[in-house]
């Protein structure tokens, strides 16, 4: 009985293995050369025909050949998979310059984002948000706020009058008047926000509807220095460390009244087009709540004092977006809203 020729088996195996270029061909090589009907397995079965002396020697040769095949099959598998990956990768080339296909997200309005930021800042001071009607009685819009009939201050707020002698609120301070009317026990820290209306000619920077954000803090012992402290905190939280200044203003419902200006970010107070040459941009109006208001709502000005402030959120949002024509923010032009959110992208 001739001995199995493991060298020939290996040679045939290696010849087939070299031709195998994909996992299926490799499986075929494995079947042909290490499967049940392979010469290798056949040679194992033929060991019984050998002499006892030959058997262990040949068996070792067969086992070594089998082990070599397994090792080379494993190596080839790795090589073939790597090659297959390479081919797949090559095949799956894509044009990365094509635009993305996910549906684009929309966006909340910049005004809402500004309002949220204001609320986030003021929550740190314990403020809560209150709401009120937009159609108001003149009492809450004027009289309760120290603006009696025929007072020049009413000129500051050209008013939309509606049926029944009521009006569209010209500021959100009305909500605070309604809060104070309930005479809650101090400390009171509330903000009101939302739409207000002015009956004026509409142009690029003026709209008949705009947004305000106002707050009051009523407590014993609040001072003018506290007012400046609160305003500084709010201004810095919203605008960073830009320079601010306080200037005297007049509001019928506060005394003393204060305007807060932010140094123009473009010219740093030198005066430029962005700030209309003023060098400063007004961001806040505020003051100590007028004693007349406190008395009108049943609070003793000698016992309790208050801080009031208002932010022009329309202007703030326009600044945030960088839009000069703030009226655009109130248009329903999809292009405008897309650009406010994502620029030209």
């Amino acid at each position: 009985m001739p001995r199995p020729d493991t060298a020939a088996m290996l040679a045939a195996f290696r010849a087939d293995l070299d031709r195998a270029q994909d996992p299926a061909a490799l499986d075929e090589v494995r079947r042909l050369h290490t499967g049940k009907k392979s010469p290798l397995k056949e040679s194992l079965r033929s060991l019984r025909d050998l002499t006892p002396d030959e058997r262990p020697v040949v068996a070792q040769q067969i086992n070594e050949a089998g082990a070599a095949m397994e090792q080379e099959l494993a190596d080839a598998a790795v090589r073939i998979e790597a090659r297959a990956d390479e081919l797949r990768i090559e095949r799956e080339w894509e044009d990365g310059s094509l635009p993305g296909l996910a549906p684009p997200r929309g966006s909340r309005h910049p005004l809402s984002q500004v309002e949220d930021r204001c609320t986030e800042v003021l929550r740190q001071l314990g403020f809560t948000v209150v709401d009120g009607p937009e159609v108001e009685h003149p009492f809450y819009n004027f009289d309760a706020l120290n603006i009696p009939e025929h007072h020049p201050a009413r000129d500051m707020q050209d008013t939309f009058w509606v049926d029944g002698g009521w009006l569209l609120r010209s500021h959100t301070t009305t909500v605070q008047a309604r809060v104070l009317e309930q005479r809650p026990t101090p400390p009171i820290r509330v903000v009101s926000k939302g739409r207000a209306y002015r009956n004026e000619a509409v142009d690029a920077t003026h709209t008949a509807m705009f947004h305000q954000y106002e707050g009051i803090w009523l407590e014993r012992g609040l001072s003018f220095a506290h007012l400046q402290g609160v305003l500084s905190f709010v201004a810095r939280s919203l605008y960073g460390d830009g320079r601010i200044r306080f200037k005297p203003k007049f509001y019928p419902y506060t005394e003393p009244s204060v305007g807060v200006d932010l140094a123009c970010r473009k010219c740093d107070t030198a005066g430029c087009d962005a700030c209309h040459g003023a060098g400063w941009v007004t961001i806040l109006g505020a003051g100590m709540i007028h004693p007349k208001l406190l008395l009108a709502f049943g609070y003793d000005p000698d016992e309790v004092s208050g801080i009031a402030f208002g932010l022009g959120t329309t202007r703030m949002a326009a600044q945030r977006v960088g839009i000069a024509r703030s009226a655009s923010m109130y248009e329903q032009d999809q292009r405008v809203h897309s650009r406010m959110h994502r620029g030209g992208r």
Binding site: R105, G106, H109, L111, Y197, H337
Partner: peptide, 13 residues
């Protein structure tokens, strides 16, 4: 916003 909506503010009148 996830469905692509933009928030707007229309006039009250």
């Amino acid at each position: 916003v996830g469905y692509g909506f933009y928030e707007v503010f229309t006039d009250g009148f």
